[in-house]
């Protein structure tokens, strides 16, 4: 019932009951269960990539030598660092320093947006498309699916930032912040594996 506590659409009977029992908040537990499940989609894509790469006769499209690693590496450094930045944002929130929280939270969003921008620039400069062989397919599928998660993360962060201006909303920590931050770390870890598989593994 905890998610429904403040739901204005509840009828009187439910509202009385919800107020009566102080129930624990299960949302973070549920979110972790969801993230574990979500990670299996990525694992499946990774396994598919490994199988394709080790068994394909012609891996790269004709005339293509391999991916440039320099810009993606910069992107990786930015994204991985943002995990530490968001951690400090959470620390500020625990110390009830709202402006410190907002500053570091905004910095995380900026770093995430930079990553997305770098990804878009890379995509536009590549000589192959989504339908160019198994390599083209898996490359855009993996980076695209991950990019979608980064975009989701940045949007969630935007919502959480907006909610920080509601008075007393984040007094004593808040589920939305914890979940968004956890999601961000998750997206980061996935990227490290993805970077090793696609860019480092030749």
């Amino acid at each position: 019932m905890s998610t429904a506590n403040l739901d204005p659409t509840l009828d009187g009977h439910q509202a009385v009951h919800a107020a009566e029992h102080e129930e624990e908040d299960h949302r973070l537990f549920g979110f972790i269960v969801f993230l574990i499940s979500e990670s299996v989609i990525f694992v499946s894509f990774f396994v598919g990539y490994i199988v394709f790469k080790t068994s394909a006769a012609d891996w790269y499209p004709t005339g293509f030598e391999g991916l440039e690693i320099r810009e993606p590496f910069i992107n990786t450094v930015v994204l991985v660092s943002s995990s530490f930045v968001i951690y400090f944002a959470e620390r500020f929130l625990h110390k009830e320093n709202l402006w410190g929280f907002r500053a570091f939270w905004l910095l995380t969003m900026a770093m995430g947006s930079f990553f997305l921008y770098g990804q878009a620039v890379e995509w536009l400069g590549l000589p192959f498309g989504f339908t160019d062989g198994v390599f083209g397919g898996t490359f855009y599928l993996l980076t695209g699916f991950h990019g979608l998660h980064v975009l989701t993360g940045v949007l969630l962060q935007g919502i959480m930032l907006g909610r920080s201006f509601i008075p007393n909303n984040y007094a004593g920590g808040e589920y939305g912040i914890q979940a968004t931050s956890l999601f961000w770390h998750f997206v980061d870890v996935i990227w490290i594996v993805l970077f090793l598989l696609i860019y480092v593994w030749r």
Binding site: I41, S44, G48, F52, F130, T131, G133, G137, L141
Partner: peptide
Amino acid sequence: GLPALTAGAVMLLFDLTVGTSF
């Protein structure tokens, strides 16, 4: 288990509609 089917179904859908070659 379900995420594995989801992954396969996404790739199948791209093969069917966009013309990828998974």
